[in-house]
Structure formats: C-alpha cells, structure tokens
C-alpha cells in the first residue's frame, strides 16, 4: 500500500484493498449498511402508518416527564438530556480511537471507560422512561394517550415507539458489551502486542452508528 494516494493509483488492479481499509473495517461498514436499512425500514413503516392515520398523539403531551419532578410539564427536557449523553459518549469514543492512533494505552482505557459510563447512563435513562410510560398504562398493544384532535388513538403509536426505541436500546446494549470486551483487551495489552488499536476503531464505527440512529429516532418520535 502506497502511503501517497495519487489520482493515478489503480485501486482495482490487485495487491491491496481497493477501499484502502482492512477487511475487518470494510465488513463493519457493510454490516452498518445492512443495519441502516433495517432501521430505515422500521422508521419508514412508522412514517407510513402515521401518514395514513387521520390523527396521532402529540409527542409533547406524552413525553413530558422528568425523574423526581412529579407531574411538572416538561416536554423534550428528558429526551434532550438523553441525546446529550449519547453525543457525549460518541465524543469520548472518538477520543479513544484518537488515543489508539497515538498508541496511548492509558488514554484509550480512560476514554473507553467514559464511553461505557455514557452508554450505561443512556440505557438507565431509557429504562426510566419505559418504566414511567408503563406505569401510565402504555405498552405494546396498550395506548392510554389521546390523539391531538381528542379522538381515541390506536395502539400504533405505542407499538412503534417501544419497538423502535427498544431495537435501538438493544443496539446500545450490544455496544456497551463490545466496549467492555475491548476495554478488557486494552487493559490486558492485547492491542499493544498486536501493534495497532484497529479493533477500537471498528467498535467505534458501531458506536457512532448507534448515535446516528438515535439522531433519527429523536427527530421522528420526539420532534415531528
């Protein structure tokens, strides 16, 4: 692989990756592409059902609670906090990748730890939100919230909300587990021995993808 990338380089003539990345990283990108279409299908089906419904519950009337604030009317505040936590954990992840490039083992371990804490905090928030909604009577097949126009809403709203945020939460959970595995390897010195921290990059790609999906979930369920 030439260090200088020139326009005339023949990427498809063999002897090197035509994508200029390792096999593992390319496959992570391909996996993420498949996941993009999975989440895309879920969100588009949600959009289709929402477009064919005469009326729909107002997200600001549903997601308006904050822990320990009782019945205070605080739309968007809690989910903004969740969004901030996830963006922050994406930043600590990219700092871990950066430290890996610098071969700074201690810094990689530090930033990975912060990423794990951020991911866990996000999951804790989601657990609280789900529990709160459950106590309000919302679950798959149960929707206590009225439509904006005051009519009885179908269960489509809660079904899509729990399925899609649940599927995203599952991805965050896998991300946290992967990060813990990677952190253990960093602490053991596996990557120091291997000579590079590319594994941190691959898990980093996955983690940023989880953040990316949340950006869309946040817009589709809480803003629109």
């Amino acid at each position: 692989m030439d260090t200088a990338v020139t326009a005339k380089k023949k990427w498809w003539s063999g002897g090197h990756s035509p994508f200029n990345v390792s096999y593992g990283k390319l496959m992570m990108w391909y996996f993420l592409m498949s996941d993009v279409f999975t989440f895309g299908a879920l969100l588009i089906s949600y959009g289709t059902i929402r477009f064919m419904s005469p009326s729909w519950p107002d997200p600001n009337a549903v997601f308006k609670s904050f822990p320990l604030m009782g019945h205070a009317d605080l739309p968007l505040v809690f989910v903004s906090l969740m969004t901030f936590i996830l963006i922050m954990s994406s930043v600590t992840m990219v700092l871990a990748v950066h430290a890996g490039h610098m071969r700074d083992r201690k810094a990689v371990a530090k930033w990975l730890t912060w990423t794990i804490i951020g991911g866990s905090a996000f999951l804790a928030c989601q657990a609280w939100e789900w529990t709160h909604l459950f106590h309000e009577g919302a679950w798959w097949g149960k929707n206590p919230f009225l439509n904006v126009d005051g009519t009885q809403a179908s269960t489509n709203f809660t079904n899509f909300f729990f399925t899609i945020t649940g599927f995203h939460g599952l991805h965050v959970t896998s991300g946290v587990v992967l990060n813990i595995v990677i952190l253990a390897n960093v602490l053991k010195g596996t990557y120091e021995e291997r000579g590079h921290y590319e594994m941190v990059e691959k898990v980093g790609l996955y983690w940023h993808f989880v953040d990316l999906v949340w950006v869309f979930v946040f817009t589709c369920f809480y803003l629109l």
């Binding site: 994508f19 200029n20 592409m33 980093g204 940023h208 990316l212 950006v215 869309f216």
Partner: peptide, 30 residues
Amino acid sequence: FVGLTVLKAFFIVAEFMHLRNEIRNLIMTI
C-alpha cells in the same frame, strides 16, 4: 427538523466515522 437531522447525520458520519478521510471507492460504496 428534517434538514437539521440530515446535517447532524452528515457530521457524525463524516467526522466521527472518518468517512470524509476515506478514499472515493469507499465513500461511494456507502
């Protein structure tokens, strides 16, 4: 909202996932 969401997605993919710094073959594949 939709416009700003796409803008956020662009920054996450281009900067955090470093897609901006990959070669054209990979960028187009994605």
